[in-house]
């Protein structure tokens, strides 16, 4: 599988490290249901068959986190962008 890095161009997936689902966001630790929310944030994952937003780190290239939209059935990649906000994902 080749991932089209916005900076480096299309590269083999072996240059990247995989984190997984890009959807979970860190809960508010001061909220009353924080323990439950953190359990869900750390452990609970969907396992969709189809397009999914994922985080990949281009460790052997530009060293940037990417948000990659990949179809889990076909490995077809439909969108790639730097993760985070602002200039170059920072």
């Amino acid at each position: 599988m080749r991932i089209p890095c916005p900076y480096c161009g299309a590269r083999s997936s072996h240059e990247f490290a995989y984190l997984g689902d890009a959807a979970p966001t860190r809960p508010d630790p001061s909220a009353p249901d924080a323990a439950e929310a953190f359990h869900s944030y750390v452990y609970e994952r969907d396992n969709p068959a189809g397009p999914m937003d994922e985080l990949w780190y281009h460790s052997a290239g530009c060293r940037r986190w990417l948000k990659v939209t990949r179809d889990t059935r076909t490995h077809a990649i439909t969108a790639v962008a730097f993760a985070g906000t602002g200039e170059g994902g920072r």
């Binding site: 900076y7 530009c62 200039e87």
Partner: peptide
């Protein structure tokens, strides 16, 4: 260039290795 390109000038050679690097 903010791209994987090399450029030269002022006796230096600069090579893009990542965004802003």
């Amino acid at each position: 260039a903010d791209a994987p390109r090399s450029s030269g000038g002022a006796g230096l050679e600069a090579v893009g290795t990542g965004p802003g690097r």
